[in-house]
């Protein structure tokens, strides 16, 4: 397959979006190939979460359009986008507190490779806690469940909003391992927002840097990793290669 000629899985064209009257994102264009992976980096409040919310259809879109597998989904309701194959892991995890762990998974289930059995293999801790309520989980377990729940929809594209934020190093390692498996072995396309720029860039192929609602830099992740000056300028951090 010649990937450069193939239709992109997801394409944003000239997006302007925000909340009600407030415009947060402007002039955003990007493409993601099938099985592609993209890191989205940027400081706090630049609009990273808003970008994912816009792809899901939760923001006010003022301009531009969104194509999914070549089809215009600009006007499609969020639940239809999810059913079309876009999985979303929200920044705040948003586990259903009154549902059990198992119910959190079954409400999202759609046929495909990821079922409860496969999930419990990927995250054995989730399996152990299956009968617990969502609000009885630790932060790390919540994050695993949020990712597991999105996988239950058997997405072709997974949108991950800071999945490693605020977690203990050992959990970060476990989740990063699972992510790697998803991207490399399963071929799930991923858009990954992450404060741990080092991990994000090592997991992905491409990267964009966001500042004040606009894309200010595009690069291959491997190249950006070595470009300390750019990283320092836009996200104010140096990373160890």
């Amino acid at each position: 397959m010649v990937s450069s000629l193939a239709e992109p899985l997801l394409a944003l064209r000239n997006i302007r979006a925000g909340y009600g009257e407030a415009v947060v994102l402007d002039n955003i264009s990007l493409e993601l190939a099938d099985r592609g992976s993209l890191a989205v980096l940027g400081r706090n409040g630049v609009g990273k979460s808003t970008l994912l919310l816009t792809i899901m259809g939760f923001t006010t879109l003022r301009r531009g359009n969104i194509l999914w597998q070549g089809r215009d989904i600009t006007a499609l309701a969020p639940h239809r986008r999810a059913r079309a194959g876009i999985g979303w892991v929200a920044q705040e995890r948003e586990i259903f507190a009154n549902l059990t762990v198992e119910e959190n998974l079954t409400v999202a289930a759609r046929p495909g490779r990821w079922d409860k059995r496969a999930i419990f293999e990927l995250f054995p801790r989730i399996g152990e806690r299956r009968a617990n309520k969502g609000n009885q989980l630790s932060g790390g377990e919540q994050q695993m469940l949020a990712m597991a729940r999105a996988l239950m929809t058997n997405p072709a594209l997974l949108l991950l909003d800071e999945p490693l934020e605020g977690l203990a190093p050992i959990i970060v390692e476990e989740l990063a391992g699972a992510l790697k498996r998803m991207i490399r072995d399963e071929g799930t396309a991923v858009i990954l927002i992450e404060q741990h720029a080092g991990i994000a860039l090592s997991l992905t192929e491409d990267a964009v840097l966001l500042e004040r609602g606009a894309i200010v830099h595009r690069a291959k992740s491997a190249d950006l990793m070595k470009d300390a000056a750019t990283l320092d300028r836009y996200i104010g951090m140096k990373i160890k290669a």
Partner: peptide, 8 residues
Amino acid sequence: RMARGLGI
């Protein structure tokens, strides 16, 4: 919102 985001 989360429910919709999961296809419900």
